[in-house]
Structures are given as structure tokens and as C-alpha cells.
Write a protein that binds this DNA or RNA. Structure first.
Length: 585
RNA sequence: CGGGUUGUAGCGCAGCUUGGUAGCGCACUUGGCUGGGGGUCAAGGGGUCGCGGGUUCAAAUCCCGCCAACCCGACCA
């Protein structure tokens, strides 16, 4: 295939669009791959669509190779199946809902678990039919509160979603591993750098789940790496501190600590009073900070939750949200404090917390607040703190909650080991062992070899296809522009005609014919009256990895071959060009 | 969800304070020169000034509402 720059529906921009912050967004717009059409919705221009199609083709090949079969559902679906699984309600405002002319409710599907489940129920009824895995490549809709970063978080996006159906847990694990392996192959072929991390299953329900995260500063997920593995920060478990025998610990005493509403002011004050300093100076980690939040439950009711964390830590709201899901978290405001007059803002202490206390506020503490640990904490009186307050001796929390911020050096149970790294990543794939949630809700059963009805167990597996395009752009670009891995570049070779002599144009066309015959597609920059500087800059911006310049040495039968990844240019005889292109990796 | 900033030609921006002919650079059209790193001269085309309402003889400009984009925040006791 040959494309002529002068005829392509393509316009590159010299300046970065003002509303694009992340590199992939800005470059895809600037290089003429995408145009914004709506909040969180993008139009694919010819070059962009070529890339999207290549990515889709790789994914389809790997799914088919793994033995999964492709189907295709409507994106516009009736309410009933989603009502049966309660997701019509559970999905909340992120679900696009609409009505037909008769007033019947419809939705634009955010994922298709229900439809796949019903499809298998429709056609299969025997254990002999299983296992089976089906997939589709489909446009999905989610009414994101804040679409951002171009393709990275849109309201309309393309997703590959697969579903496995098995008769038992062993089968589910096998299907899950097959998908895991297929995803690894897929992302390797797409040249996406990724890590597999343990994850929370979130809104999909189910148990075991892992995410494929592409490390990138623009990523919205934070994950931790330990010697024993990696996990999303929402899914990690901090190792509990060891219990301490408190028989010999000093008794708790209350002291006036005027003007110490913050942890730092409290620590400074404590260390400035000789009678308060112990064997060694106090640090923020010796204080116990009690944060109160309001939980809003699914039925609309609310409750207060107090969380005790070491004073050098913050409550990580994302970890907290994940822990209390599906309830949502709101910070305690003045009106909340008004409802709990026993709480003194800035000096909240364990004495007034817990279900046994008068205010009946549930009180959960960080795993580091183990029995026998001793703390400085609020005395529920303005300007007053308790010293040497010992957990399990002087106060009894209602339980443990692991929602403090995570740091390098922390010890974890999941993933096992000490945290060596905290990093950000973009979620490009997610695999779940769903279990029987959907099969039960929609009554998907088959007969086993004993003639008994058994409920099918399912897995659900997604790849963000349009997001993958952004990730590739994000991970491979340089300061000059995009750089597409050869497997998914819109075309194989970008031929720049550097000069105005007629012979260069005919020569370039002949060279393109030769490359086509060898199986390479070519974009020829045949624009007249455009300076070579502009052509070179556009070629670099467009990011086709192989650039061939037909210019002043052409009369000697020589062209220049440039490799965007190696950032090198070499002179090659015309007769050697195909071989030289074949040698590029 | 809260706060801030922004919205004027395809892109990047000025004009708004003090109401009165809508401007600049790039891109685009025509012609010339130039021709290996966003070159140059000349002449042009292109705008419901985000949307809706209000004030006024008159609104890009003042007022109200809405929408959108970007950034920050959501506990730090």
C-alpha cells in the first residue's frame, strides 16, 4: 500500500494544544491521529485508525490463538439483565441510561458480563459444552466524572472483553491462566512495558484479580513493588506490628498541651517539656492520629467511622474507598462534628471512640497499632493529650483497617516482603476470577455427569484497546514526536522526498513500489513547495519508525535510511534498501 | 463532589480594566524567490467572540445562569 502525503486527510499542528497535558494526548492530536469530538470522545483520523486497527488485529490474533471465540453484542442494551444483577443500581451515575420512544429503559454498556452469561445460558446446558471462552472487541460507555488525558480516560472507548465459563474452580483457574498468558503475549507484541499486580476486584465482584499496569507518570493507579511481587496500592496488606507485653509499661497520664492542634506542633511541644520526654525524643510516629469520616452506604444511610493511624501517616483516601466499598467516604465536616459533641476537633482520642463508647462510633486502627503499643494521642479536650496510652490496656479498638499511606521500607503481607518501590501505572488489562456472582444472578446452570444442576463459574478479562494506543504513544515517544513500534506503526516506511527535481518524485515512487513488493506499506511525502525542514519535522512527529530520505545523493543511487528508535541515519544503495529495511528491528 | 484558571478563525494567543469598525503569529488560497532541518516577499479567504438570558441607543467587553477544558483539592485533627 502507498499513501501520498499530499492526498492524505492529515494536518499536523506546530503548537501543542493548550488543553493537553500528557504526551500521548498532545502528540496524537498534533500529529493528526485524533480530534476531540466530545468530552471524553475522540474522532479517529486515517493515521490514527490505522494504528488502532493494528492494535486490534494483534489482540484478535492472540485471543484466537488461545482458542477464544469472537462474538459481538450491541452496545445499546435493555435494563432487565442489569436489573437482575443489581448493576442498574450499583453502577451508579457512571452508567449512561436512556429511554426509547415508549419510555423503556436502556443503557449503553460499560461491560457485558450479563449479556455473555445470558448468551451461554441460551445455548448451552451440559458440562460437556464447557469450558468455553468468548470475547468481543466493543465500544464501551462510562459516564466518567472527569474524563482526562485524551484516550487515557474517555467516556467512550474500545475494550476487548473476554469471559470464561467453567464447571468448577480448577477449570476457572486454568481458564484464568490461559488468559493471563495470552495477555502477556499480547502486550509483548504491542511493545507495552507492563507489570502484573494484585488488584481489588472492585465493581465487578468476584475474588482473585490481577491488573496489567503500564508504568507511566501519567498513570492513575499507584502500585507497590516488594521483593515478593507487586500489587495495586488499593490491594496491598501491611504486616501487623508484633504485640508487646504491656505489664511493665508506664501508666497513661493526661497533660496540658496548649496550641497543639497538629501532629508537628504536638511533637515539638512534647520534646520541649523535660517532664514529658522519655528515654528518647518523641516523633510523629509515636503519636496516634484519629481521623473521622462519614460513610454513605448503598441504601443511603450514613455512619461515622474513626480511623487511628500513626501520626506520621496520612489516611490514603483511595485505599480507604477501596476498603469500605461499596460505601462512599466523605470527610467529617462541621455539621458532622455538631452531631457528635463528645468529639473535640483536633484532640480526638480513643476514649470517646469505639462501639462501647457513648458516641458509638466504630473505631478501627492501623495494623501498626498492635496490642501493647504505646501512644501520645488526643484526650478529647482542647489543648490536652494523653501520654503512654497503651493499646488493649487503655483502649480497645473495634478492629483493624489498613488504609494508611504506603512508603518504601514498609513490610507487607500482600505482596510479601518489604516495599522497594512505589510507582504509577496505566491500567491496560485486568483479569478476574469472577466466580458465580453473575451465573447465580442470571441462573446459568448446566447438568453435570450425574445429571445434577450445577452453577457455572466465570472469569472476566479486559484489555483497554484505545487506552493501549495511548500507552504505546506514552511509552515510546521522544522529544521530537511519536515513535511507533514496527508491529503497530500505521505504515512501515515514511519516504521523504527532499528536493524538487522531478527525478526524485519518480525515483521515490519506484522505490515505494519495490518496498510494496517486499511487503512494506509506504507513506510518501510528495508535498511540493514544502521545505525539507518541515518534512523532516513532520516525519519525526508522525513517528513512523523507518524514514527513508530520497534527496541529493539519489543521482548516485543512494538514499538515507533513518531509524527513529536507534536515532541513526545511514546511506544505503538503492539496490540494498529492502535488505536494510528487513534488518531493522 | 469542592475550589481555582480558562473559553475570541483549524492551532497558539492579544483585545475585556474604561461598551462603539474583531486583531496578531502559524496553518490555508494565489503569484514570485528559495530548496538537506519549521526560509522569504506580496496579495487574499476564513469568526453565531463557548451557550442562553439580562442591562444598554449599542455587548467579545458589564450582570446572571449554564456548558466545556485544564489544574489543584477532598483526612493531615
Amino acid at each position: 500500500m502507498q499513501y501520498r502525503f499530499s492526498e492524505m486527510f492529515l494536518r499536523t499542528l506546530r503548537d501543542n494544544p493548550a488543553d493537553a497535558e500528557v504526551a500521548s494526548h498532545s502528540l496524537l492530536i498534533r500529529a493528526g491521529y485524533l480530534r476531540r469530538a466530545a468530552a471524553g470522545g475522540y474522532t479517529w483520523l486515517p493515521l490514527g485508525l490505522m494504528v488502532l486497527n493494528k492494535v486490534t488485529a494483534v489482540i484478535r490474533e492472540e485471543m484466537n490463538r488461545a482458542g477464544f471465540q469472537e462474538v459481538h453484542f450491541p452496545a445499546l442494551l435493555p435494563r432487565e439483565p442489569y436489573e437482575a444483577t443489581n448493576r442498574w443500581t450499583e453502577y451508579g451515575p457512571a452508567l449512561f441510561r436512556l429511554q426509547d420512544r415508549r419510555g423503556a429503559d436502556y443503557l449503553l454498556a460499560p461491560t457485558h458480563e450479563e449479556m455473555f452469561t445470558l448468551l451461554v445460558k441460551d445455548l448451552y446446558s451440559s458440562y460437556k459444552d464447557l469450558p468455553v471462552s468468548l470475547y468481543q472487541i466493543q465500544t464501551k460507555y462510562r459516564d466518567e466524572a472527569r474524563p482526562r488525558a485524551g484516550l487515557l480516560r474517555g467516556r467512550e472507548f474500545v475494550m476487548k472483553d473476554s469471559y470464561s465459563f467453567d464447571v468448577d474452580d480448577a477449570g476457572l483457574i486454568t481458564s484464568y491462566q490461559k488468559h493471563r498468558a495470552a495477555y502477556q503475549r499480547t502486550f509483548e507484541r504491542l511493545n507495552i512495558d507492563y507489570v502484573i499486580v494484585s488488584a481489588q476486584s472492585g465493581a465487578m465482584g468476584g475474588s482473585a484479580s490481577e491488573e496489567f499496569l503500564a508504568p507511566a507518570a501519567a498513570g492513575e493507579d499507584t502500585y507497590v513493588v516488594t521483593s515478593g511481587g507487586a500489587a495495586n496500592v488499593e490491594a496491598i496488606q501491611i504486616a501487623p506490628a508484633a504485640s508487646i507485653d504491656f505489664a511493665s509499661l508506664p501508666a497513661a497520664t493526661v497533660h496540658d498541651t496548649p496550641d497543639t492542634p497538629t501532629i508537628q506542633s504536638l511533637v515539638e511541644f512534647s520534646n520541649s517539656k523535660p517532664e514529658l520526654v522519655g528515654a528518647k525524643p518523641w516523633t510523629a510516629a509515636d503519636t496516634l492520629k484519629n481521623v473521622v469520616v462519614r460513610l454513605t452506604h448503598q441504601d443511603g444511610s450514613t455512619s461515622a467511622l474513626a480511623i487511628g493511624v500513626p501520626g506520621d501517616r496520612e489516611v490514603d483516601m483511595r485505599r480507604l474507598e477501596a476498603q469500605v466499598y461499596p460505601a462512599t467516604v466523605t470527610p467529617f465536616g462541621d455539621e458532622d462534628f455538631a452531631k457528635y459533641p463528645t468529639l473535640v476537633k483536633g484532640y480526638i482520642g480513643p476514649g470517646q471512640l469505639g462501639k462501647h463508647a457513648s458516641a458509638k462510633i466504630e473505631y478501627l486502627v492501623d495494623p501498626r497499632v498492635a496490642p501493647g503499643t504505646s501512644w501520645i494521642t488526643g484526650a478529647n479536650k482542647s489543648g490536652s493529650h494523653v501520654f503512654h496510652l497503651v493499646a488493649d490496656r487503655d483502649f480497645k479498638p473495634d478492629g483493624v483497617i489498613d488504609v494508611a499511606d504506603v512508603r518504601v521500607g514498609d513490610d507487607c503481607v500482600v505482596p510479601a516482603g518489604t516495599v522497594t518501590q512505589l510507582a504509577r501505572g496505566i491500567e491496560v488489562g485486568h483479569i478476574f476470577q469472577l466466580g458465580k456472582k453473575y451465573a447465580e444472578a442470571l441462573d446459568l446452570k448446566v447438568l453435570n455427569e450425574n445429571g445434577e444442576q450445577i452453577t457455572v463459574t466465570m472469569g472476566s478479562y479486559g484489555i483497554g484497546v484505545t487506552r493501549a494506543v495511548a500507552v504505546i504513544a506514552e511509552q515510546h515517544h521522544d522529544d521530537k514526536g511519536l515513535r511507533w513500534p514496527r508491529a503497530i506503526s500505521p505504515v512501515d516506511v515514511h519516504l521523504v522526498i527532499a528536493g524538487k527535481d522531478e527525478s526524485l518524485f519518480t525515483g521515490a515512487t519506484e522505490l515505494a513500489n519495490t518496498l510494496n513488493a517486499a511487503g512494506y506499506s509506504v507513506l510518501i511525502d510528495d508535498r511540493v513547495g514544502v521545505s525539507v525542514g518541515v518534512k523532516f519535522n513532520d516525519a519525526e512527529l508522525l513517528g513512523i519508525p523507518t524514514i527513508i530520505v530520497v534527496g541529493k545523493k539519489f543521482v548516485d543511487g543512494v538514499v538515507e535510511l533513518r531509524d527513529r528508535f536507534a536515532d541513526q541515519a545511514v546511506d544505503v544503495a538503492l539496490t540494498e534498501v529492502v535488505g536494510a529495511v528487513q534488518n531493522l528491528k
